[in-house]
Amino acid sequence: MENKNKLYDLIIIGAGPAGLGASIYASRYKLKNLIIGSEVGGQVVEAAEIENYAGFNSISGRDLMKKFQEQAENLGAEIIQSEADDIKKIGDGFEVSAGTGEKYKSKSVILALGMNPRKMNIPGEDRFIGKGISYCATCDAMFFTNKTVAVIGGGDSAAAATVHLSEFANKIYLIHRGKMRFKPALAEQIKQDSKIEIVDSAGIKEIKGDQTVKSIVYESEKGEKEIPVQGVFVEIGAVPKVVIAKNLGIKMDEQEYIIVDQAQKTNMENVYAAGDVTTGSNKFRQIITAVAEGAVAAGSAYRQLITHNS
């Protein structure tokens, strides 16, 4: 059990690739570090197959993140599986409140907050989460075996979800408000699949149903149309998870990504940020860039702490 009065050198908020990567480096710098994150592995655990992380030809997101976690823990990371609710600047250091009600103190902080799936914000969305609306096609495709579903979105994640769902559902409408842009390999698969019907330039207006989803209403140039579906998979990207950073006074760009310099420093001393939530790495938002930003952030925290202590 961790000592609540212990002063950590570093608290890392977020347990995805950036947070775990930061911890691995921090431990090797002998920084006493604590990770607080609601979901160990972050968004990556939803990826069925990863083929672009160096060192692995193909690996599932959850297997890769298990390896990250094992390595971080072997090197000495403590992980608290909980949302971090608040960060306060107190004197020279920080106090982080976890969703567990416990408070933890540190000299420095890395914000590896990650992203939340973007919501459609239309009538019916909240009501039918888990009752036909899903944000994870790999998790929930099986429940729609022989059913009709809609996938909302126009990017590669929408295309990948559609191709995955095609193994289960009878009919898939792929609906997007603009023109769709997919990787050539996915575009080809979609084109050749007779179960998939593309509806472009159509905005979703409403999800309807009783106990579960029964239909979706969209509007295009031809007017409003309601089509019967039992499932709706939302794949319209993600938004940075920045509430606690905002409250602390961290600067963000107009899209609410945390502004960092090349050392992953934010506008506040001893606060660093890493991973998808930052403006770093040309906003490439890959696992490998998240890990790299975490490593750089840990290195920067280490240098600041030894300078300060000597």
């Binding site: 609601s38 949302e83 036909g132 998790c139 929930d140 579960t212």
Partner: peptide
Amino acid sequence: YGIMSIPAIKIFKNGEMVKEFIGVQNKET
């Protein structure tokens, strides 16, 4: 139990479902 999204967590007391959650939940909740 109408599972359409997992993880789904349901709590039963005296044979009745009293609470349900969708998605990963923390221990304290």
